[in-house]
């Protein structure tokens, strides 16, 4: 589904990704861990097409297509979804109108018919349930004045609405209390299927207790330096990253 080969990217002349490789198949969950500043969010941004990041080498294929050639909205249309580490507040844009525009644009891109107002509302109601999204949040401007946890919940709600194939969750667990974490993880697990895949960026095992990964990767200094199964995450939690940095240095 996703094939990243030797990906190199920079921002403002600073090289951040330095030859990153990753293969993701349908039905898989990949966790990416790694110290602060390693380039995890950069990877997410490059995948979703942020203009500020310049790809200086390597390739990214998504379902056989070179997605680096596509605009951000086209990548979303192709079925790529990024749950932001820091979702932005957009005053004056109502959550409902935004969601309706997004859902219908994505449907158009996929050659599906636009939803009628009634069908759209029905879909909203359904998906809201999967993440316990209260109606009053939907009625407000997009993320405006939302708590940290509410913003993250809104990201997963949007994911459910847009029906992507590949979901990149960038620290969706940070700032969540235990109940909110369970709700968010539950939303993810409901959406998970053999046809879609997840890349879960996190610092904590806590999330991986709920969203169980098939693979765990360590991203350090712009590269994936170690890969393993879910046991690797437990080891990292216990020992930190220093031993990996030492391994890499040798």
């Amino acid at each position: 589904m996703l094939s990243i080969k030797n990906l190199q990217a920079q921002i403002e002349d600073k090289q951040i990704l330095k030859g990153l490789n990753l293969e993701v198949k349908p039905g898989e969950i990949h966790a990416i861990m790694g110290p602060n500043g390693a380039g995890k969010s950069t990877l997410a941004s490059v995948l979703s097409g942020r203009e500020e990041y310049e790809v200086t080498g390597g390739s990214v294929e998504f379902d056989g297509k070179d997605i680096l050639e596509l605009d951000p909205h086209e990548r979303a249309g192709e079925g790529l979804f990024l749950a932001f580490q820091y979702p932005v507040e957009i005053p004056g844009v109502s959550t409902t109108n935004f969601m309706k525009a997004a859902v219908n644009e994505v449907r158009k891109y996929r050659g599906q018919e636009e939803l009628t107002a009634v069908d759209f509302l029905k879909m909203m109601k359904e998906k809201m349930k999967t993440v316990d999204m209260p109606q009053d949040l939907i009625n407000r401007s997009l993320n405006e004045g939302f708590s940290g946890g509410e913003k993250k919940r809104n990201e997963i709600f949007q994911m459910a609405m847009l029906e992507p194939k590949l979901c990149v969750l960038d620290e969706t667990d940070s700032g969540l209390d235990i109940d909110a974490l369970r709700i968010v993880a539950n939303g993810v697990n409901q959406y998970k299927s053999k046809d879609n895949a997840f890349i879960v960026i996190t610092h904590y095992q806590r999330l991986l207790d709920y969203i169980v990964p098939d693979f765990v990767h360590v991203l350090h200094d712009g590269k994936i330096v170690k890969s393993g199964t879910k046991e690797l995450a437990l080891e990292l939690e216990e020992k930190g990253y220093d031993w990996i940095k030492e391994e890499v240095a040798q």
Binding site: S48, G49, R50, E51, D71, P72, H73, R75, A76, G77, L82, F84, P87, V88, I90, V93, F98, A101, A102, V103, E105, V106, Y109, Q158, L162
Partner: peptide, 18 residues
């Protein structure tokens, strides 16, 4: 606001419309 603009685009809305 570039951050906001990107957020909307990342949800499938074209740049012009965003």
């Amino acid at each position: 606001d570039e951050e906001a603009l990107f957020y909307l685009q990342a949800r499938g809305i074209s740049k012009t419309r965003s």
